[in-house]
Design a binder for these strands. Sequence first.
DNA 1: AGTTCGATCGCCT
DNA 2: GGCGATCGAACTG
Length: 200
Amino acid sequence: MVEAAEQVALPRSFYARPTVEVARDLVGKVIVHQVDGEELAGRIVEVEAYLGRGDEAAHFFGGMTPRTRVIYGPPGYAYVYFVYGMYHCLNFVTEPDGEAGAVLIRALEPVAGVEAMRLRRPKARRLEDLASGPGKLALALGVTLDQYGVDVTNGSLIVRAETNHKDFRIGVSPRIGIKKSADLPLRFFVEGNAYVSRAK
DNA sequence: AGTTCGATCGCCT
DNA sequence: GGCGATCGAACTG
């Protein structure tokens, strides 16, 4: 019998497309992580695209390194990195095998396992702050380097296709916290959503 | 081998 | 709005 999560996970073909398209289409989808016997889930309300060509802000600008090797492989896998000595950030690999590209997940609206997520984020007082940033959501979901390179079309960390929120507007803006290629409109978010890391 | 600095967060003023 | 925490990856020599 197939796991329920596998039946609804976005297929690899979803990720095997231009990064900007994948980024836009990920908004509104639901990430589900099975950890320590619990199901933690959140609706994606904010993402950023990082491109393979001409994007100086991307970690993989200038070529492959040991850290970024997964980005050059087949799509539909997790790219997780560690920053500022304390936070992890979750990305999904895009583009066909051999091409670089990734989408950074920047904010989630908690959907399931909220109490467990609160335990993982004791400093978050308000529900809106539980996963309203890339470092926060990785902590809340229990994503660490253990998830580096895992298949997100099949397994304990997946993206679910369906969502109850069908109607929403997608806002576009420059990406946050970067200095190079800073003007490119590669951030996509649910307009007016309280769980986004920044209003606009 | 040493140094720099980051796709962040939260606390301080 | 400013800054300190904290550490590995990547780059320099």
